[in-house]
Design a protein around this nucleic acid. Sequence first.
DNA 1: TATTCCGATAGTGAC
DNA 2: GTCACTATCGGAATGAG
Lengths: 218, 218
Amino acid sequence: MSWRYALKSYITNPETVDDGAVIFFNDEVTIIRDSFPKSECHLLVLPRSKQLSRGHPTSTIDSKFKNNFGPYVDSAINYVFKHFQDKFQVKKSDQDMKTEWDESVLKNKDIFVNKFLQIGIHSVPSMANLHIHVISRDYHSVRLKNKKHYNSFNTEFFIDWDDLPLNKNTLGKDKDIETKYLKNHDLVCCYCHENFGNKFSSLKKHLELEFNNHFEFK
Amino acid sequence: MSWRYALKSYITNPETVDDGAVIFFNDEVTIIRDSFPKSECHLLVLPRSKQLSRGHPTSTIDSKFKNNFGPYVDSAINYVFKHFQDKFQVKKSDQDMKTEWDESVLKNKDIFVNKFLQIGIHSVPSMANLHIHVISRDYHSVRLKNKKHYNSFNTEFFIDWDDLPLNKNTLGKDKDIETKYLKNHDLVCCYCHENFGNKFSSLKKHLELEFNNHFEFK
DNA sequence: TATTCCGATAGTGAC
DNA sequence: GTCACTATCGGAATGAG
Ligand SMILES: Nc1ncnc2c1ncn2[C@@H]1O[C@H](COP(=O)(O)O)[C@@H](O)[C@H]1O
Ligand SMILES: Nc1ncnc2c1ncn2[C@@H]1O[C@H](COP(=O)(O)O)[C@@H](O)[C@H]1O
Ligand SMILES: [Zn+2]
Ligand SMILES: [Zn+2]
């Protein structure tokens, strides 16, 4: 079986997968922790229906789909929020200045979701089984190892759940999308918007600083 | 002072340079071993006149220049021939087949020069002080580290002393020459003409074999 | 087409 | 998609009263 089907067993037999990734399943969905999380908390929501699973997300995720799976996405959101709350707290700035990054980010779920969570899909998924990413916007992870990883979540390559279904599918060819957003797009810090060009190593070090400036272990 | 003038002290004060590179100098020329030799034996002949030294080789090396410096080039050739003779001998092939690579290469200077020596210049020199390369055609050297190094001696980027002065300077822009010959030109073995494409590492290993198949230490 | 260091880019085979 | 490995390609600094 091709690597494109690495997620398949999570929907065919979630009860027998023993890698500890599954956090919820019923007849309709499986929710897992991504095995190669690109942030502190990175979940995938997978519809179990073969029909839905093999569809391309941009054409499959319509309002009916959203109505049906919205609650499961919400539950993934709740999980991430809780997990982050349990593990981290907002760091008090030395300067004690009033910023957007006050404690409310980890106290108020709506603020957390708006400022610090990404829910959506990749324009060109690699994994064949349809999945929705629910990922915290810290990008503080040893699994985040190259430009493609970062830009797949931090450019228009990432399509927000709220923007689905797309009014009109204006996406180009897969190769063109990848070239434009994953290869040629500058690396831009998601905290402060500093532009790092192609310097992934510099961005990595910077993300480490950003994370440690904003959060600390409880 | 810029790295482009790394050769300057060899012509301004050859008597005080103490790196052991200088093998001959008089009022007109300095002859040195290249500090980063790309073959077993790699010399540079440098006119000491400021006027000549700052000229571009393709416009400066005319018949008058050649008459004047030909003898020094010859002396560099003699040095390389002698050095190679002293250090190496042609290896007897197991198959004992009659090839061009018989012992005459290291016994007859004319054959050595014709088959195994390159005398000339780079189309686009990096070093600002005019210099003529006299280099054995083995390319067996730890200093030969990349495609540019190899192709600068094994494509038309290298202009033979015998072809100077050029009838007509049909060279393009420096950048274009560099792209065409150093970057885009395939790597081709100078012994057997096998094409290695961009695989410099493969060529390196092959050159090691070629050298050891043709020569051995005395 | 200076060297050297460091890192970005790219292809491979395997899982 | 992952990893590990190898190797190619690419920019930046290079100096120093
Ligand atoms: N073998 C695997 N098991 C579980 N998840 C994986 C595996 N390989 C890749 N992934 C994740 O699957 C996701 C696929 O994302 P996508 O680019 O949308 O197809 C990525 O976030 C990967 O980290
Ligand atoms: N610092 C140096 N001292 C002596 N020779 C050098 C130095 N740097 C480079 N070279 C050599 O100078 C030559 C310049 O060749 P060119 O490409 O014709 O300018 C090359 O063969 C280099 O190996
Ligand atoms: Zn930042
Ligand atoms: Zn060969």
